[in-house]
Amino acid sequence: MIPYWLLYFLTLVIFVLGLYCLVAKKNIIKKIIGVVITEYSINLFLVLIGYRKGGIAPILLKDISEQQMAEKGVDPLPQALVLTSIVIGLGVLALMVSMVLRLYEKYKTFDMSEINDLKG
């Protein structure tokens, strides 16, 4: 059985990996993948917050008493947050990819170190 804290720690590891990918890689596609990995690590973190060992769906059926519900029911809110955050992430990803396509049309390269007309 994996200890609970290790799962939280692993999401942080994924987050840092994403940041590393974003900072160290020169290819802009890889940079986008880095952003997406950081987003997913946060989503996993949110899911973990709502996780409960042996939890049941938070729906009050007839054969479940309110006390059982309070003891076992998982928190539904983080799941709703994750869904919203995935959709937002998709929107940002679509914009990033279309931006990269336009960048490729202009510069004929995916290398960020060659796309540096501006001073920053």
Binding site: L22, K31, M96, Y107
Partner: peptide, 17 residues
């Protein structure tokens, strides 16, 4: 244009973080 796209992409990555 070239510069607009570059600026926008930088802004997009940093804003995403």
């Amino acid at each position: 244009g070239k510069d607009e796209l570059e600026a926008s992409f930088k802004y997009l990555i940093l804003g995403g973080i």
